[in-house]
């Protein structure tokens, strides 16, 4: 392990490669830290704040803080998980998240995290915002009611697809994703179902048309194993 360094995560040693963030190193080691706006193929973003941990006693995002030798990182603690529950509740009341009618249910990261952190109620007063649905594209449906502003589609379309189909506009709770076309409609862009951006949405805001509840309930991604357990299972498979 000469070329490796290590830090401590909830008392467990985590070996990392120089340049990795705490989150990357933890996930690579099969230890789950909750996250929503993170994607292994993209630069760290740090907006959802689900991965907030304590590093040597100071709060910070595990996805943006570089792993350093000797760090003492706390993640799976009642305090941090309590705050994560609040962040999830904020996301649930901010949008219109009605799981029973959502095609993404069972495969949704937001929902899976809420299960894992045992969020039983959105708790805060619902905003019930009025948001748009864009069905102009032949293959893809946009339902902004479920958007959580993680900008994964923005980043995927810009950095991978080279199309910049999406952008985050507005400020504060008026923030919203817009489509880059004079009409503002997806149908007037060169967006394609094969785009990276079509597959990165962690929630049900970008959906493939004509695919409805294809996987039976009970067999969907997070029906059996919780999202946290899947991270360690995946790592075990790869090892």
């Amino acid at each position: 392990m000469n070329e490796y360094d290590k830090f401590s995560l909830d008392g467990r040693p985590i070996y990392f490669e120089r340049g990795q963030s705490i989150l990357e190193a933890a996930l690579a080691a099969g230890v789950y830290i909750p996250n929503l706006c993170h994607h292994p193929e993209f630069k760290p973003h740090g907006s959802c704040k689900l991965c907030t941990v304590k590093v040597n006693g100071r709060f910070g995002s595990a996805c943006t803080i570089k792993a350093m030798p000797g760090q003492e990182v706390a993640s799976d603690t009642p305090e941090l998980n309590g705050n994560r529950r609040v962040l999830l509740q904020m996301l649930f009341v901010e949008g219109n998240h009605f799981c029973p009618g959502c095609e993404k249910s069972g495969n949704c990261k937001l929902q899976a995290l809420a299960y894992d952190i045992e969020m039983l109620t959105p708790h805060y007063r619902h905003f019930y915002p009025v948001r748009e649905i864009d069905a102009t594209h032949p293959d893809v449906l946009l339902d902004f009611n479920r958007c959580i502003m993680c900008e994964l589609c923005v980043r995927a379309s810009r950095d991978v697809d080279g199309k910049s189909v999406f952008a985050l506009a507005g400020r504060g709770t008026a923030s919203h994703v817009v489509v880059n076309s004079p009409s503002g409609k997806l149908g007037d862009t060169d967006f394609a179902l094969t785009d990276k951006a079509a597959s990165v949405c962690p929630v049900g805001a970008i959906l493939s048309k004509r695919v409805g509840f294809a996987v039976p309930i009970g067999e969907r991604q997070y029906d059996v194993d919780p999202i946290s357990a899947q991270a360690s299972a995946r790592q075990a498979e790869e090892a």
Binding site: F92, N96, H97, F98, C99, P100, G101, L120, T121, P122, H126, Y128, V130, R131
Partner: peptide, 18 residues
């Protein structure tokens, strides 16, 4: 005790909220 989606976030009937 709030039982079920509608009691917890309005559920299907809340689809009229917009």
């Amino acid at each position: 005790v709030a039982l079920g989606a509608c009691a917890i976030n309005g559920g299907l009937p809340a689809q009229r909220n917009h």
